[in-house]
Design a protein around this nucleic acid. Structure first.
Lengths: 211, 211
DNA sequence: AAATGGTTTAAACATTTGTTTAAAAATAAC
DNA sequence: GTTATTTTTAAACAAATGTTTAAACCATTT
C-alpha cells in the first residue's frame, strides 16, 4: 500500500519539480514566481509548498541536482583509464553533448553561484579532492616526461571548458548577431567544438606527430 | 570602464544611475528592487521614478550604456591599423583590463540578453556591419596568404573572448573551488590571460617564427 | 457504510513589489 | 521679498509575491 501511495505522490511531486527545473533554468531564481511553476506543472499553487515547503527549498534541491549531475559527469571522464589526449577530447565531446541538451545550464549555474555562493556551494571539499585525482596526476606526468606542453590542470580545465561553454553562455547573443535559427546555431557550435579540439590538441602536443 | 565614484556633490539623477548600475550588475534586473537602488543611492524611493519614469526604463538605459561601451571599446581595437598578431594580443589585453575592472559585466550582459533579447538588442545591424570591417578582412587576407591558419572571424572572435571572459563568468565558482581571495584570483586570471595569448598565437601562427 | 489519511483545492494571508500622490522644502526668477 | 519652478519627502496605492488555511476530495481500510 505504501508503494502505491508513494507512486501517486511522486507523480505530482515529480511534475512540479520538473516544471520548476525548466523554469528556473530559463529565468533563474529571482525571475521565477511560485505561480509560474504551478502554471507550468498545471497544478494548484499550494502544492509547491505542500511538497517542498518553500520556493527556496525547491530551488536548492534542483540546483544541487543539476550541479551534482554536471560535476559527476565531468569527474567520471577525469577518472577514465585512457590516454590524456583521448581523455581531453572525450571531455570536450561530452561537455558539448550536455550543453546541446541543456544550453542554459552553465549560465544558470554561474549566475546562481554568483548570487548566493555561500548557500549553494557549502561543501566543495569532496569535489576538490576528486579534482586533484587521476587527471591532474596524468597531466603532471605527461608534462614531466615532455610529452605535453607545460601547463597545470587548474588552467587547462577552465581553458577547455570555458572556450566551449562560452558559446552556449552567449547563445542568444550569438543567434541575434548572426540571425541564425536553432539548427544553424547547433551547426556553428559543432564547428566551434571541433575547432577547440584542434586548437587544444595541437597546442598541447605540438612536438608530437600530427596523425 | 569608469570606476564607480559616489560623489556627494553629484546630481541626484547621476547618483541614482550609478548606484543602480552597481546593483544591477551584481544582482541582475529581476533580483534588484527599487528600494535596493534608493537605499544604495541614499535617496528617497520616489526619485527613481521622478528621474527615470520606471525601474525598467532605468535598467534599459544602464544596459545600453554598458553594452555600447563594451562593444565600442572592442570595435575600436578591431579597427586599429596594426598587424593581426599585435591586434589579437591587444584585444585580449584590453578585454582583460575591462573584465578586471568589472568582473560581473559579461555574466550580467549574457544573462539579461538571454532573459529579454528582443527588448535589449533591438538593433544590431550597425554593430554587425562594423563587425565585418577591418579585422574580418585582415583575417581573410592573412589566411589567404598562408600567414595564418585557416579560421573565420566568426569563430576566432568568440574563441578568444570566450576563453578569457569565462574565467570571470565563473569567478565566484573559481574562488570557492580554490579557496582564493580577490588578489589571488587576479593573479590566477593574469596567468590565464597569458596562457591564452600563448595558445592563440602559437596555434594561429604555427609555421611562423616564435619571435 | 463509516472512518482514516494522504492529496488537492479555492480562498485568504501578510509582505513586498513598483509606482503615484500631494504636500513640503529648496532653488530660481522676478 | 514675493512668486514661480524644481526637487525632495512621507505616505499611500494597487498589484504581485510567497505562503498558509481549512474545507473538499479520493482511495483504502475497517
Amino acid at each position: 500500500m505504501e508503494v502505491i501511495v508513494t507512486c501517486i505522490t511522486q507523480s505530482s511531486e515529480k511534475r512540479i519539480k520538473e516544471a520548476a527545473r525548466a523554469i528556473f533554468l530559463k529565468k533563474g531564481y529571482a525571475g521565477t514566481t511560485a505561480r509560474d511553476i504551478a502554471e507550468a506543472a498545471n497544478m494548484n499553487i499550494a502544492l509547491t509548498n505542500y511538497y517542498f515547503r518553500s520556493k527556496e527549498k525547491l530551488f536548492i534541491e534542483i540546483f544541487r541536482d543539476l550541479f551534482n549531475y554536471y560535476c559527476q559527469n565531468t569527474l567520471r571522464i577525469f577518472e577514465k583509464p585512457v590516454g590524456i589526449r583521448e581523455k581531453l577530447i572525450e571531455l570536450i565531446e561530452e561537455d558539448f553533448r550536455v550543453m546541446k541538451a541543456e544550453p542554459n545550464l552553465v549560465l544558470f549555474l554561474m549566475n546562481e553561484i554568483q548570487r548566493d555562493s555561500e548557500q549553494l556551494l557549502p561543501e566543495l571539499s569532496k569535489f576538490k579532492e576528486l579534482l586533484h585525482g587521476t587527471l591532474t596526476t596524468q597531466i603532471k606526468e605527461e608534462v614531466q616526461n615532455g610529452r605535453m606542453r607545460d601547463i597545470s590542470a587548474d588552467h587547462l580545465i577552465p581553458l577547455i571548458m570555458g572556450s566551449l561553454q562560452f558559446i552556449f553562455v552567449g547563445k542568444k547573443m550569438n543567434m541575434k548577431l548572426h540571425n541564425t535559427c536553432e539548427e544553424e546555431f547547433n551547426h556553428f557550435a559543432e564547428c566551434h567544438k571541433n575547432l577547440i579540439i584542434s586548437m587544444i590538441t595541437e597546442y598541447l602536443f605540438v612536438p608530437e606527430t600530427a596523425s
